[in-house]
């Protein structure tokens, strides 16, 4: 799916969060790195209309998230760094089923699809557990299951491993980079993870500083900030 940014800027009051971003991306694994406050999360939120540009135009698969947020959100799943805030329903199966509540499927069909999604990510056995009783890694897998059940075309993950321990971070990373067929935009501070992407974007001070193969982008990032 083609992601296009044309002269996109975002400002909050007097602060510029993104400044004149122009790019075209169609790679399957798109990594985004940069220091805190560099504009990474703003970039991610523009992709499904959680934030709208102050000026310029964003297009994701031909959909403008600013003017058609509903269509943008149906084709773009978003994973946040804090797994706790993504849980809407009390139990695991109900939370995944919630995504399909307006799909027109019957109750049994929804439950069956939700369970299949949980099983796909290895947490089918937790289906009837209270969602808040899961570990952080399991909650993040739940968030992925809840998003993947609606089969979006694009997954945007904003530091999805930031609050996870090493084992869970690796598990979630493997799922996002290897198990999912969809296009993934991965915002991360984990440079090993960033290195596995097809293309890497580096933000600094609200500007898109570099776009290219991961290795040279990471090298210059380390040189400037190491």
């Amino acid at each position: 799916m083609l992601i296009e940014f044309e002269s996109v800027s975002v400002s909050f009051d007097a602060k510029t969060a993104l400044d004149d971003i122009n790019l075209k991306l169609d790679q399957k694994r798109i990594g985004v790195i940069g220091l805190n406050g560099s504009g990474k999360s703003t970039f991610a939120r523009l992709l499904n209309g959680l934030i709208t540009p102050t000026s310029g135009r964003v297009s994701v698969g031909g959909v403008n998230p600013a003017t058609d947020p509903k269509a943008a959100r149906s084709q773009t799943g978003f994973i946040f760094s804090n797994p706790d805030v993504q849980i809407i329903m009390p139990t695991v199966l109900e939370d995944v089923s919630f995504t399909l509540r307006q799909s027109g499927l019957t109750k049994d069909e929804i439950a069956s699809k939700a369970l299949a999604s949980l099983e796909r990510f290895g947490i089918g056995h937790l289906a009837n557990q209270a969602a808040h009783s899961l570990s952080s890694g399991q909650k993040q897998l739940l968030a992925i299951s809840a998003i993947m059940v609606s089969e979006p075309k694009l997954i945007v993950a904003d530091e999805p491993t930031a609050l996870l321990d090493l084992a869970n971070a690796r598990l979630v990373s493997r799922v996002l980079l290897e198990q999912i067929d969809q296009q993934v935009v991965l915002i991360t501070h984990d440079l090993r993870l960033a290195n596995e992407c097809d293309i890497l974007l580096r933000f600094a001070d609200a500007r898109l500083l570099e776009v290219g193969e991961p290795s040279p982008v990471i090298s210059s990032y380390l040189a400037e900030n190491g």
Binding site: D84, T99, A146
Partner: peptide, 16 residues
Amino acid sequence: KYADEFAEALTARGVE
């Protein structure tokens, strides 16, 4: 803070 982030997650999951 939780309320704010939760509201954003709800929006991201298409709850209008």
